[in-house]
């Protein structure tokens, strides 16, 4: 199911939590929602799940506005703090949410069983939720979100509280689900977005500041190619001057002995020309590494003023 968000705005008092944002998510796409605390991620997710009503703008699912048609049964939602009925046993709770989401009575036991297996809850399934560790509670939260096999999954920080093994398992699960469903997830863990999401949307102060794949964002933020090279068997100053004189070079910095950082002019690659230069002067090129901008740097650049 496709989700289209059009000029969405929501204020709390005088503060605009979400400010005129628009974007689309397509079936089979996993969208990672990034942003600092208070950026408006959770508010946007709450509006998509119809918990909050937007001040203005519209959300449509498969072309139908959610203001006029209820789409709640198509959405599975894991809220940020994973609220659960702690006094209920896991199995009862999952049966309860399945019934509420309109799963046919005859299908509920099978569906609950599937979720218990899928989310690794088998050992803990007869315990009360209050007796579970944070990681297992998170799994129950995920299981309740997926119990009715929704076409859209909205997951607000799905891996909070999980151990590294569980994080990998849940990421794999989300990826598998993401091939056939529309998934929007928010997180603070940047490597998680890179590992899981097809597309990243960075939001800051209620506005979208970046939208694209991790690679596109890197390219956008980088603009020019930066290479780290190690050239031996030559005079450092001489090497520096010669690289600077290349037509593709914007700047050269000496990092340490024999190591240089070469920045090329926009949209031009310097790899070959540097290699040719070394060949011509009988220098030994022992390293040439394109400098990658980390997602953390992009995030910091976009969300701090």
């Amino acid at each position: 199911m496709n989700i289209a968000i059009n000029k969405l705005t929501k204020s709390y008092g005088t503060q605009k939590a979400v400010d005129d944002i628009s974007f689309e998510v397509k079936t089979g796409e996993i969208l990672g929602f990034l942003g600092p605390n208070g950026a408006g991620k959770t508010t946007t997710m709450k509006m998509i799940t119809q918990y909050l009503v937007p001040d203005s703008g519209d959300i449509s699912i498969n072309g139908k506005s959610i203001a006029t048609s209820s789409t709640k049964s198509n959405i599975g939602y894991l809220p940020e703090h994973n609220p659960l009925y702690l006094e209920m046993p896991v199995m009862d709770y999952l049966s309860f949410t399945a019934a509420l989401q309109g799963v046919a009575k005859s299908r509920i036991p099978d569906q609950v069983k599937n979720m218990v297996m899928m989310c690794g809850l088998d050992i803990e399934k007869h315990k009360k939720i209050s007796e579970l560790s944070k990681g297992y509670r998170q799994r129950v939260g995920l299981a309740q979100a997926m119990i009715h096999d929704p076409e859209i999954l909205i997951l607000d920080e799905p891996t909070t509280g999980l151990d590294p093994n569980q994080i990998v398992e849940i990421r794999e699960l989300i990826k598998t689900l993401g091939s056939s469903k529309t998934v929007i997830l928010s997180t603070h863990i940047l490597p998680e977005v890179e590992a899981t999401c097809d597309r990243i949307l960075i939001i800051n102060r209620g506005k979208i500041v970046a939208d694209g794949t991790a690679d596109t964002l890197r390219k956008q933020s980088q603009g020019t190619q930066v290479l780290r090279v190690k050239i031996e068997d030559g005079e450092m100053e001489d090497i520096k001057t010669k690289i600077e004189s290349l037509s593709t070079t914007l700047s050269v910095d000496i990092l340490e002995r024999d190591r240089f950082e070469v920045q090329s002019i926009a949209d031009i690659q310097s790899n070959r020309i540097i290699f040719d230069l070394c060949k011509q002067h009988n220098w030994v090129l022992t390293e040439m590494v394109p400098f990658e901008t980390k997602l953390e740097d992009i995030f910091r650049n976009l969300t701090t003023n």
Binding site: K46, T49, Q50, Y51, S70, K72, S73, I75, Y77, P79, H81, P83, L84, Y85, L86, T97, L100, Q101, G102, Q144
Partner: peptide, 13 residues
């Protein structure tokens, strides 16, 4: 208080 109202209001209820 527990936030479960958010869960209920986002279900088909």
């Amino acid at each position: 208080r527990s936030g479960t109202i958010e869960l209920m209001m986002t279900k088909a209820v």
